[in-house]
Design a protein around this nucleic acid. Structure first.
Length: 782
DNA sequence: CAGTGAGCGAGCTTCCGCTTGACTT
């Protein structure tokens, strides 16, 4: 017999709120949305004003029936989902699905999870805001139309199972365009000139840089020549105070960026760890775009700062969320209790918690004060000067606790440290001058985190979707996260020392990248295709402009169906027209030339299974005609750059490498990369070897190596039961029996002592579990 | 730190945003 039922979005929230409200209230969670469009069908009735067909997903049925029965027996139902568009829609769906009545249903919102805030919310209920709900429906329907009309075009024109959408397609575009910028980038060289002077004391060195870079070697030589007999005098010393302010508290996107820079976590790793911290009650909600801090948090941060650092270090700061229509449904990401320093958990969790705690405290601390000193060294007879800049921290302020990192992975500018004491008009003696050829930097490739930052700047995607979007564009093989080897570049160093000018050639590695996002052939082809036919959807401002429409809907000034209709009337005809274009050649196809052996044309294109070379064309009607030949491109090759010669070489595979133990060895490229087949067994060919050039000796070494490794995998075999094996795997020892694998219980200290009967027992015990698991695994795949 | 190892004619595939789950053999 419950008097009141409160429904919130997340179970962790439900737990805390229940404590505040006492025994007259039962608090349950909807676990996000409880109803959505069907997953496999279009589910929008275009003819009838875009009516959406909503269903309750299978995994929500049980929850919904529980909510329904609780709602029935409650005197009053309180819908307490978040205050934003999605939250309002969740409340509305609950209202509809649970069959709630207006007289005993109330909609409440609160901005922080404290007793006072919740009690206040209960005292000031309102009704469901149907305009806000309609803005959400418009957003949902638009995304479905875009996704489900564009994707099938890609299946027909490019490759099956591809996808396109308002968010993911722009993410891919950013990466494709950045790669083109990098490709087209021409670096410019200039000489950076650094002098080392000796102060009058005869020992102290002052390092200073010329106030401009010199164009070329001739200019450098002329300049150095002119310095040979010049005098160097300190002609100016200025000192001015500089202030630095702390960064605002974490949102999802800034947390992802800082955790990547400072801790090296991937975007999804950060979210998983943050989720655990949230569930343990250590931090506030981790999916938020708000930089707002509750009064309680501001108060405890103040206390912590006063106690640890003193009054001088404290400064009250209030941060405002930039996005218009400020949906301060959540707070910034912060520790639940700022006084809480030590915590249990894994080292990863500890490090992320510490990062969040420090950032939160720092944002309420005083500015750091620095003194920047600039020393100018004049050169007799010249207008150029050498300049030395040094910074001294006069008051640490927030830097005591936390300093935000930046992305630059370019060349490190010299640290501005402390400068030696000097006097104005002092004459310095020259130790040496070194002019080093430096090049302008190409634009950087995106990391996961910097892509998230860019998407957020464009207003595309939400905190809950950044990580999944990055996953999707990689799953579709539009983008790969990987390393790029650098290239060697020569540069010149010209120096003046002991009155002599010397020139040396040096080399450096440039352009190497680790863990960066790069487009694949598929990503590039799909992007170019979409850019050609659907530039409006791919426009960086598309989301912003439809959001403006949704805002009008939310304010009740525009019918949501009108907003959708306006878009659909323009969009759908293009879809129809594009689908109707019969192309003989696939999108992105390129002719390389003629195969000298057969005289047939050679193409590269995106095939059913990825990039492929094709010789000859198919003749569907003529069964006698020779079929075209196919060969997949190898890793590192691209349909944009592959030459006819390279393409024809691919047809040399599979290739017989030689014989070993009386059996042939064949090199080929399979689904998982290049391999050697020998005696019915497969061995992968490592990166540094090529299946086109691998020798018999190298292949035999690989086979031997593989055999050795296989031996080490076995912990135990049983003669009486050859199908039973104990093996070493990635997750520890396991039993393999009749092609199925079984985990060894943790109670077994040494798996090598297990007998055949022990193994059979383990299998029998695990038997029921595994069959159940397999069923769910299959469901997931379907 | 394992396992896998083709094809280019069906079938099925797909969106974005809200939320955790049951578990790695």
């Amino acid at each position: 017999m419950q008097k009141n039922l409160v429904i919130v979005e997340s179970p962790a929230k439900a737990k805390t709120i229940e404590k505040f409200l006492g025994k007259d209230y039962k608090v349950m969670s909807s676990y996000g949305h409880i109803r959505d469009l069907k997953t496999k069908e279009f589910s929008i009735d275009i003819q009838h004003d875009y009516a959406p067909q909503y269903v309750i997903p299978a995994d929500k049925k049980k929850l919904v029936s529980e909510l329904k029965s609780e709602a029935k027996s409650a005197e009053q139902v309180w819908l307490a989902s978040d205050e934003d568009r999605e939250g309002e829609a969740i409340s509305w769906h609950l209202y509809e699905v649970l069959g709630l009545k207006p007289e005993n249903t109330k909609r409440i919102v609160f901005h922080e999870i404290t007793k006072n805030a919740i009690l206040h919310a209960i005292e000031t209920p309102r009704d469901i805001d149907i305009n806000l709900v309609n803005a959400q429906q418009a957003r949902r329907v638009l995304d479905r139309i875009v996704g489900f009309e564009l994707s099938p075009i890609l299946w027909r024109k490019v490759k099956p199972a591809l996808s396109a959408g308002r968010v993911q397609s722009v993410a891919v575009r950013l990466i494709v365009e950045r790669e083109r910028e990098i490709h087209d980038f021409v670096s410019e060289a200039a000489f950076r000139v650094i002098a080392n002077f000796i102060l009058p004391d005869g020992t102290t060195v002052l390092k200073a840089e010329l106030n401009r870079r010199l164009k070329d070697k001739r200019e450098v030589e002329a300049f150095l020549e002119s310095c040979k007999n010049a005098t160097f005098t300190i002609d100016d010393i200025t000192t001015k105070p500089v202030k630095k302010s702390p960064a605002p508290p974490f949102t999802t996107s800034t947390l992802q960026q800082e955790a990547a820079r400072k801790l090296g976590y991937s975007v999804s790793q950060t979210m998983m760890i943050a989720q655990r911290l949230y569930e343990s009650g250590l931090i506030t909600y981790m999916r938020t775009d708000s930089v707002n801090l509750s009064d309680l948090a501001l108060g405890t941060a103040k206390e912590a700062i006063l106690e640890t650092y003193g009054e001088k270090y404290y400064k009250f700061r209030h941060y405002h969320t930039k996005s218009k229509g400020a949906q301060e449904a959540h707070e910034a990401i912060r520790p639940t209790y700022i006084s809480h320093v030590e915590m249990g958990g894994t080292p990863q969790e500890k490090r992320l918690y510490e990062l969040i705690r420090k950032r939160t405290i720092a944002c309420q601390m005083a500015d750091a004060e620095l003194e920047r000193t600039t020393i100018s060294v004049g050169i007799s007879g010249q207008t150029e000067r050498f300049v030395a800049v040094g910074e001294v921290i006069s008051f640490e302020g927030f830097l005591q606790v936390y300093m935000e990192s930046n992305d630059d992975d370019g060349e490190k500018e010299q640290e501005n440290g402390l400068l030696p004491p000097v006097k104005l008009h002092e004459t310095l003696s020259l130790k040496d001058i070194v002019a080093t050829e430096r090049f302008t930097q190409r634009p950087p490739r995106y990391t996961e985190a910097s892509l998230v930052r860019r998407l957020e700047e464009l207003g595309i995607g939400r905190p809950s979707t950044y990580a999944p979007t990055i996953q999707t564009i990689q799953n579709r093989e539009y983008v790969v996260k990987g390393d790029k080897e650098g290239t060697e570049r020569a540069y010149t160093v010209v120096s003046l020392s002991n009155g002599k000018i010397r020139e040396t050639e040096k080399t450096e590695m440039v352009g190497a990248d680790r863990n960066k996002l790069m487009p694949t052939d598929i990503g590039t082809v799909v992007n170019d295709f979409l850019m050609e036919y659907f530039p409006d959807v791919l426009d960086y401002n598309f989301t912003a402009s439809v959001e403006k429409e949704f805002d009008l809907v939310a304010e009740g000034e525009l019918l949501w169906t009108k907003a959708i209709d306006k878009f659909y009337k323009i969009f759908h005809p293009i879809v129809e027209a594009t689908a109707a274009v019969k192309t003989e050649h696939k999108v992105g196809e390129r002719e390389l030339g003629i195969d000298p052996k057969s005289g047939n044309p050679v193409f590269v294109k995106i095939g059913r299974y990825g990039p492929v070379v094709q010789i000859g064309v198919a003749h569907a009607e003529d069964k006698e005609a020779p079929k075209p030949q196919f060969a997949s491109l190898m890793k590192g090759q691209s349909i944009d750059t592959i030459t006819l010669e390279e393409a024809l070489k691919l047809f040399d595979l599979p290739r017989t490498v030689g014989e070993y133990e009386g059996k042939v060895m064949v090199a080929a490229v399979g689904r998982f990369g290049p391999f050697i087949r020998h005696d019915g067994k497969f061995v992968s060919i490592p990166k540094d070897l090529n299946p086109l050039t691998i020798t018999a000796e190298e292949a035999i070494d690989l086979i031997k190596g593989k055999r050795e490794k296989d031996e080490q995998r076995f912990i135990k075999k049983f003669e009486e039961e050859p199908e039973m094996e104990i093996l070493k795997g990635r997750f520890g020892p396991y039993i393999s029996y009749k092609k199925a694998n079984y985990r060894i219980p943790k109670t077994v200290a040494d798996p090598a002592v297990l007998t055949l009967d022990d193994c059979k027992k383990i299998i029998a015990e695990a038997g029921e579990k595994t069959t159940a698991k397999k069923k769910t695994a299959r469901k997931k795949q379907a």
